[in-house]
């Protein structure tokens, strides 16, 4: 790949721009509230882990993380398992209404969450799923399932059709071919799709907050409680924020070699 002049400088500046606000959050999370409000310091002069200790010992805080992880995992599993066969169908066959269906799916990926907040609230209250991780997991399917189909379709199309044909000639049944041959071949694609489902479910707040009240409250909603009589608890807010970045950073390390292709939705 041929690069442009001054690329190191441009890239460094951009990466610093990306990291600076994150650094500031981390910095604040290790400061005492007194230090935050009273002086402007570039690093914590009296470093403290009190905010983190509080999050890990107060159940209303750490249960927020567990709740979030629950619906994210449920959503990822549902999305991938329904999207896999569909991706294969879209990639290999033509059938009645295939293009319209694909477009309809895509349009749901783009649907604004704000439109669905209220009707989802009614729907999940009516079927007694309100305030459970299932409600949020199912609600997030509206954008994650289309995305998973879209990504996986790109990866399945990268598998030569001769492989299917050979397998069927060898007497593989369809389910067996699917599990034994196709899934291992697109394992990286499944990883990428799962990563994206995880990511979009993890970062979404509007639906997650609307569909939960007490028992399944996600961490993002818990964070809005840091305003107290004594004013904003900035240190605690920052510490909670830092902890929400960690799962994403861990996941991304595992898929780092596929990030670029994954973001192109398997289409490069």
């Amino acid at each position: 790949m041929h690069s442009i002049p001054g690329r190191r400088l441009i890239l460094s500046l951009f990466l610093i721009f990306l990291l600076l606000p994150i650094y500031w959050l981390v910095n604040m999370s290790f400061k005492t509230n007194g230090e935050i409000v009273s002086t402007m310091t570039l690093w914590p002069h009296q470093p403290t882990i009190a905010h983190y200790v509080r999050i890990f010992t107060d159940e209303s805080w750490y249960s927020g993380y567990i709740n979030s992880l629950k619906y994210v995992v449920i959503n990822t599993v549902i999305s991938i398992s329904v999207a896999l066969p569909a991706a294969y169908a879209f990639s290999r066959y033509r059938f009645l209404g295939d293009k319209h269906l694909f477009f309809w799916l895509l349009s749901n990926r783009m649907a604004p969450a704000a439109v669905y907040a209220l009707p989802f609230f009614n729907l999940y209250s009516a079927i007694d799923l309100f305030d459970t991780p299932w409600a949020v997991a199912l609600a997030h399917c509206i954008f994650n399932v289309p995305l998973a189909v879209w990504i996986l379709e790109g990866f399945v199309s990268g598998v030569p059709r001769e492989i299917d044909e050979t397998a069927f000639l060898d007497g593989y049944s369809f389910p067996r071919f699917f599990v034994k041959i196709l899934v291992p071949l697109i394992a990286s694609g499944i990883g990428v799709a799962a990563f994206f489902c995880f990511m979009f479910s993890w970062v979404e707040l509007l639906l997650a907050r609307t569909l939960t009240s007490v028992n399944a409250k996600p961490i993002a909603a818990v964070m809005t409680r840091t305003v107290s009589a004594a004013g904003m608890d900035w240190g605690l807010l920052a510490a909670a924020g830092v902890l929400t970045i960690i799962p994403g950073a861990l996941v991304i390390w595992f898929v780092r070699n596929y990030i670029a292709r994954g973001f192109a939705l398997g289409r490069v």
Partner: peptide
Amino acid sequence: LVILALPLLIPWNVVGTI
């Protein structure tokens, strides 16, 4: 790549908070 992808993985309300 990892640094680039980092902002994308931060929950949206935390982006706001940051």
